[in-house]
Simulated scan of single mutants.
Amino acid sequence: MVLDFSNRKIRNKILYSVCILMGVMTGFRNHNDWRDTYGYVASFEKIKTLDLFDVNQDNLLYQEKGFYLLTSSIKTLCNNSTFYLLCIGLLSSFLLAKNLSRYCLFPFLGLGIYIARFYMTRDLMQIRAGLAIMIVCYAIQYIKRKKLWKYLLIVLLASSMHISVLLAIPFYWINKININCRKILLWLFVAFVSAFICEAFINLLLNEHLEIIKQAYIDGNSEYSKGHGLSNPMIYFQCLILLVFTFSEKNLKDIIPYYFIFRNGYFYSTILLILLSPYLVLSGRTSTIFATFEIFIIPSFIIILSGKLRIAMYLVIGCVMIGIFFLNCLSLIDSSETLRNLM
């Protein structure tokens, strides 16, 4: 907490140092102890170096050519899986530090929120998505500057790491819509009603127009494809964050330069989470892109209050995030020996 109220230059130096240290810890994790990591390591072993690069190489965990090229480049430098994970971890952590220093009022609190909400699933498991989302967050500055082509080029670069972030492209135009508090409340109501009564219609729409997504994330009867529907507590968590941020517009819009971009993006994320709630992975993969704005939004709640109440709010947010972190640990404990040993 002291660091967030310290000199900006000193704060940023410490922030980058902490994030780089986090990237190093990420790189030296046990390859067999986190979901997806073993698959990425296996793909790394199969991938050819740049001198033998084959754009059509198959039998990999992923199809995105940008991440394939990045992996091939790392392997050309050093054919070692730990070095590979270290490079990806450091790149993601560097972008995280850059985004926090640019967008967040209290970056160390934002870092704590990131660790609680996203670190284990992204940096330790879904490393392509984690890297791609950090690139998209970096691109947000070009929406405010109204530099469409720079934004599109960076998002397309990110999509070459993970295809899901293509959903960030229409956000450039969604952000131009005049979205106010009444519209947010109305669309949340519509989304809840639609999710409750229109699951069959949504499934038909996906079946007719997005067959690849349907096959990847919906077909089958596994826990992987079936979601919790409207009983998913994350829906109500996001709704709460969105509404607090929305009703605090007068207090925050002049302090946070990116206020409306953050609010509109988080609104976009929440609507996707509600509408696609019957499908576990599809709702998560689509909503998580702009759910990342939590690391910029939640720390701003401190500004709503004044005096000693700000310190109290800081501590309350910290305690809530510690609770969420432990809940995430419990959800992953069966698949991670590291977590079992720690807990």
Rank of each mutant, 00 (worst) to 15 (best):
M1W: 03
V2Y: 09
L3E: 04
K9P: 05
K9M: 11
N12F: 09
Y16R: 07
Y16T: 02
V18T: 14
C19S: 08
R29S: 10
H31G: 05
W34F: 15
Y38F: 10
V41G: 06
S43G: 08
S43A: 14
F44S: 00
T49A: 10
T49H: 02
L50T: 05
L52G: 08
F53V: 08
V55L: 15
D58C: 07
D58A: 13
D58W: 08
Q63G: 11
E64D: 15
K65F: 01
G66E: 04
G66W: 13
Y68Q: 12
I74Q: 05
N80A: 10
T82S: 14
F83C: 11
L86Q: 00
L91S: 15
L95G: 13
S101Y: 09
F108S: 00
G110N: 10
L111M: 06
I115Y: 08
T121S: 09
R122Q: 15
L124F: 15
M125E: 13
R128Y: 12
L131H: 10
A132R: 02
I135K: 00
A139N: 10
I140P: 01
Q141R: 14
I143K: 12
L148V: 09
Y151A: 04
L157M: 13
L157W: 07
A158T: 08
S159R: 04
M161W: 05
S164N: 11
V165G: 06
L166D: 07
A168Q: 03
I169E: 00
Y172C: 10
N175S: 14
N178Q: 14
N180G: 12
R182N: 13
K183C: 07
F189D: 01
V190L: 15
F192S: 04
V193M: 14
A195H: 01
A195D: 03
E199K: 15
A200L: 04
L204N: 08
L205V: 15
H209G: 06
L210C: 12
K214F: 00
D219A: 11
N221C: 03
S225R: 06
K226D: 00
K226L: 13
K226C: 04
G229H: 12
M234W: 02
Y236T: 11
F237D: 04
C239N: 02
C239R: 01
C239M: 13
I241S: 04
L242W: 07
L242R: 09
L243S: 02
L243Y: 02
V244C: 12
F245A: 02
F245N: 03
T246K: 04
D254L: 01
F260V: 07
F260N: 11
F262Q: 09
N264S: 14
G265M: 01
F267W: 07
Y268N: 07
S269C: 11
S269F: 08
L273H: 05
I274H: 12
L275A: 03
L276P: 04
L276A: 09
L276I: 05
S277Q: 11
G284Q: 08
R285Q: 13
I295V: 14
I295D: 13
I298C: 03
I298A: 05
P299K: 09
L305D: 00
A312I: 15
G318P: 01
I322M: 10
C329I: 04
L330D: 13
L330V: 10
S335F: 11
M343D: 06
M343K: 03
